[in-house]
Simulated assay, not measured.
Amino acid sequence: MELWFMGTSAGMPIAERNVTSVALNLTRPKGTFWLFDCGEGTQHRLLQSPLKLSRLTKLFITHLHGDHLFGVPGLLSSRSSLGGVEPLDVYGPPGLREFIDTALRLSGTHLDYPLNVREIEEEGLVLDGEGYTVECAPLDHRIFCLGYRVAEKPRAGALCVDVLAAAGVPPGPAYGRLKAGEDLVLEDGRIVRAADVLCDPIPGRVVAVMGDTRPCEGAVRLARGADALVYEATFGADLAEKAELYGHSTSVQAAEIARAAGASRLLMTHFSSRYGREDLALLEEQARSVFPRSDAALELEPYAVPTPPRRGR
């Protein structure tokens, strides 16, 4: 599982940064990825990454401000042109369906795949399947804005091969059945229970992606115990009043959310155009004074979300 930032700029792009979008490259199912927000130019950034647009399966929009949304019509069209035929599920606030339908209708754009748009009005479970759950909650911005929590479901632990060998279970299909959680009856009538020959399950990873927001309880809930928290740091610590006025957070406030949530790592994004790349070190320094594992996300750099170590019995 990796995070790739397609855009980290707030409001408008600058020469070295695109507007907001972050991709979650999944290991299950292999080769697919999800996208959170889609500012103008996102598909151009994808061309510079190893991610293939035809393998995009889900798109999550946090809110309807243009720097998070204006890239959607072009991306949908290009996915079709590039041979994408599998359904695409799109989630976001009320008004998202009207925006997409209007853009496609007025431009005469035809899609060669089913497009499923689900508008979300309140906190709750967004999806449960394909090895993951996704929850959302409203944040505190100038317009209705969502944050998302992606939780990978636990995976079965490794088989205790030495125990199986001692029981006389030969390698082969029987191993697969036990790995899948099925108990096995041997020829002599003995029962080998899957629970007795599997190491502890591997905990799933959790990634929380916030839209634009002031510090709020919803963000803390979604980020609770996250392995990676993607959170905006539009302004430096000296501009807290401006952040409050415009519904944003500072670098220090981002770190405070990560600390309060007990997250493992903070990846800051959505930087004001006043900050060039050389200024991001200051934002990191400010955040790290509160939460040491804070980084200013760089575009087109992979950020791995490590698999928790296997635990023996």
Rank of each mutant, 00 (worst) to 15 (best):
P203A: 14
G204K: 11
V163Y: 05
T269V: 09
G124F: 11
G236C: 08
I143C: 07
F60Y: 12
L82G: 00
R205M: 13
I14A: 07
P170L: 09
R105Q: 10
C199Q: 12
F5S: 07
E278C: 10
E152K: 14
V161I: 15
Y148G: 08
T62Y: 02
R149A: 11
L106N: 01
D200V: 06
T32M: 05
C216M: 03
P171E: 05
M12W: 14
L69M: 14
T20S: 10
G204I: 11
A23G: 04
I120E: 08
P215F: 02
L266M: 07
R221C: 02
V220C: 02
L139H: 04
E241R: 10
A10G: 02
P50Y: 11
H44Q: 10
D227P: 01
A194D: 11
A23H: 08
R55C: 10
S273D: 13
E301Y: 01
Y148D: 05
Y113N: 08
V161L: 15
G176P: 00
S54I: 12
Q253Y: 03
D140R: 09
L300I: 10
A304R: 15
G247D: 02
D112K: 15
Y132C: 09
G129T: 13
H44E: 12
R313N: 13
Q253I: 00
C145P: 05
R205D: 13
I202K: 10
L88K: 08
N25V: 10
A158W: 06
A263F: 13
R142T: 08
C216S: 02
L186P: 06
A240N: 01
R265T: 08
A243T: 01
I191P: 02
V150E: 00
Y175R: 03
L239E: 14
G71M: 10
D37T: 15
A195D: 13
F144L: 14
F291Y: 07
E16H: 15
H248F: 00
G11H: 04
V90A: 10
R17G: 00
Q253L: 01
P309V: 09
R105Y: 03
V161Q: 04
E217L: 12
D238R: 12
I100F: 09
P201C: 11
G7M: 09
V209G: 02
P309R: 13
S54G: 04
A228W: 09
L298W: 04
S264P: 00
T8F: 13
E278K: 14
G276V: 12
L69W: 13
V134E: 03
G83C: 12
A237M: 03
P215M: 03
R265D: 08
S289Q: 11
L198F: 09
L125H: 08
A223F: 09
T62C: 14
V207W: 03
P173G: 07
P50F: 13
L139F: 07
C199I: 00
R221L: 06
P215D: 03
R277W: 12
G176Q: 11
A208H: 06
D238A: 13
A208M: 09
R214I: 00
H44F: 05
V305C: 06
A10L: 11
V163N: 00
V252K: 02
V185T: 15
R142Y: 06
A165M: 07
A281K: 07
R28W: 04
L69K: 12
Y175M: 07
L24E: 03
Y303L: 01
R155Y: 06
D188P: 01
G147N: 01
S80A: 04
E86H: 14
R149V: 06
E217I: 05
R45I: 03
E232K: 01
W4I: 05
I191Y: 01
V169G: 06
